[in-house]
């Protein structure tokens, strides 16, 4: 049984379709990249899994099944449990993910206190372990407020926090968009390590195909709310079929065999 099955999902904003009949399947432990440009509906799709949609967006039809449980009709209380323990999110804004006026150790401890029945020493052990795993000094980090850490350390702490309950599904919504390319690499390496250690599935939302080339296993390409093409990484990169996928691939400047112009399919005087 797949870990996550999204079938015929449509999401509306007033009268316009933001997500249009989307089907998506994720196996346990799979790294799936959902690629699209702004306005393609990729983030809205990601939001809808944990029912985090803003109130003006509404799921029109379709189902989202997580380990066989229908999420769209699940009671809010059950959903909240799932959201913390089994489905974790990482967003673009790392600073915003931590409460500024609480020590990081306390924030971790509260999370574990709420969602597990571990004893205090067990919790402490677990927290040190995960911080160590993401390359942070446990003692120092736990006793710091978020503003006392560097940007990179905050990113690590936030990723550790989403991984500490060993979720089955990690949804990373543009986790690298605000970062430069070196830092993007570090962040994704980190997520990849955690994925391998805990065998969680990753739904990686991005607009950058180059990162997908390095990190994805399966890929879906989204445009105007629809999934236009979907397949293994090899299929998408080596034999793309949909013109939009081809266009996206051609838009990325390569490092080797640099062409004189990028073939984007853009014609002069066309509607811009």
């Amino acid at each position: 049984m797949p870990l996550l099955t999204i079938s015929n999902l449509s999401i509306n904003h007033v009268d316009s379709k933001i997500v249009d009949n989307v089907n998506l399947e994720l196996q346990a432990g799979e790294w799936h990249a959902l690629v699209g440009e702004s306005g393609s509906g990729k983030s809205v799709t990601a939001f809808s899994i944990g029912r985090l949609l803003p109130s003006e967006l509404e799921v029109q039809s379709g189902s989202i099944k997580f380990k066989g449980t229908e999420l769209t009709s699940l009671a809010e209380k059950e959903l909240r449990k799932k959201r913390a323990k089994e489905i974790a999110y990482i967003f673009q804004d790392y600073q915003g993910a931590l409460t500024p006026f609480m020590k990081i150790g306390k924030q971790f401890d509260e999370l574990l206190y709420t969602h597990t029945d571990w004893t205090k020493s067990e919790r402490k052990e677990k927290i040190s372990q995960i911080l160590h795993r993401v390359g942070l000094q446990a003692e120092r980090t736990l006793n710091s407020y978020p503003f006392q850490l560097s940007g990179g350390q905050v990113q690590r702490a936030v990723i550790a926090m989403s991984a500490i309950l060993e979720p089955k599904l990690l949804i990373a919504d543009e986790p690298t968009t605000a970062l430069d390319s070196l830092t993007s690499g570090t962040v994704l390496d980190l997520i990849q390590d955690l994925q391998k250690q805990t065998n969680c599935a990753v739904l990686f939302i991005t607009h950058d195909l180059r990162l997908v080339k390095k990190y994805g296993e399966t890929v879906s390409v989204m445009k105007h709310g629809r999934i236009v093409e979907h397949g293994s990484k090899k299929e998408i990169f080596e034999s793309p079929e949909h013109p939009y996928t081809k266009q996206l691939l051609a838009s990325v400047p390569p490092l080797r065999n640099v062409p004189h112009r990028l073939n984007t399919g853009y014609k002069k005087e066309e509607a811009i």
Binding site: L209, L248, P253, L262, T264, Y266
Partner: peptide, 15 residues
């Protein structure tokens, strides 16, 4: 900018 927009801008700059 979005990937395809980036590419168009790069082409434009080169032209």
């Amino acid at each position: 900018l979005d990937v395809s927009v980036q590419a168009n801008i790069l082409n434009l700059l080169k032209d």
